[in-house]
Nucleic acid binder design. Structure first.
Length: 212
DNA sequence: TACCAGGAGAAAA
DNA sequence: TTTTCTCATGGT
């Protein structure tokens, strides 16, 4: 099986996911930081709280007292760390010129800038690049490693950049496919978990995480 | 009660 | 360079 065959199978089974679940690019960026090692349902609560305090802009986040910001982020866990990371990101975002100035920066250069922000690692940076800046980078997460290593399409303990390069080479440069593919992988992984232990309806039963 | 969820950075080995 | 530890809530 190839990467594109898996993609077609997932798309046929689950349909288009219309990711990322956010109203604006900046909200997407906030979500990407808050979802680090955290279930999305908890992130949604934190975003609602930020919104209720009119704190869903980079300026508002920087102006909010750190202790209050952390309090609003509590539902997403790691609130003290995430409050500081969110601030770091907003400071960079404003300093770098926000949209549309950032849209003019080359993808590799933009990725380097993102990775230089304390609190932004490869997965978070690539999610922001793909879903907020619409750049052709593939997001490698734990689900991707698990599913595709079982398909023997990649080596589970390979480095992040190696895996990303594999996907990007095999799928060619297509933002729409990268966007949909990652969403489908997450959708499948969660769907498979819900159907544990049988997972009889799983469209990829042979590689379903819950059957391994 | 214990474990897990879409990580990242710092410290230790 | 690689591994381990820490951060922390809510759902199951």
């Amino acid at each position: 099986m190839t990467f594109i065959q898996v993609y077609n199978k997932l798309l046929k089974h689950y349909g288009h996911q219309h990711w990322w679940p956010a109203e604006t690019p900046f909200e997407m960026m906030v979500g990407a930081i808050l979802t680090q090692n955290t279930a999305w349902t908890n992130v949604e609560r934190a975003i609602v709280r930020l919104e209720s305090h009119s704190c869903l802009t980079p300026q508002a986040i920087l102006e909010a007292p750190l202790s209050e910001l952390a309090e609003w982020l509590k539902p997403s866990g790691y609130f003290n760390i995430k409050a500081q990371r969110l601030r770091n990101y907003c400071q960079w975002y404003i300093d770098a010129g926000e949209f549309p100035r950032l849209s003019c920066i080359d993808t590799d250069a933009l990725r380097k800038q993102l990775l230089a922000v304390n609190g932004i690692g490869p997965e978070t940076a690539d999610a922001i690049l793909l879903y907020a800046f619409e750049r052709p980078v593939f997001v490698i997460d734990a689900y991707t490693r698990r599913i595709f290593s079982r398909l023997k399409l990649l080596v589970v303990d390979a480095g992040y950049e190696t895996l990303r390069h594999q996907f990007e080479t095999d799928l060619q440069t297509d933002v729409a496919v990268f966007n949909e593919y990652h969403a489908l992988i997450v959708c499948h992984a969660k769907d498979a978990c819900k159907k544990r232990p049988d997972c009889v309806n799983c469209c990829l039963a042979c590689i379903c995480p819950c059957r391994m």
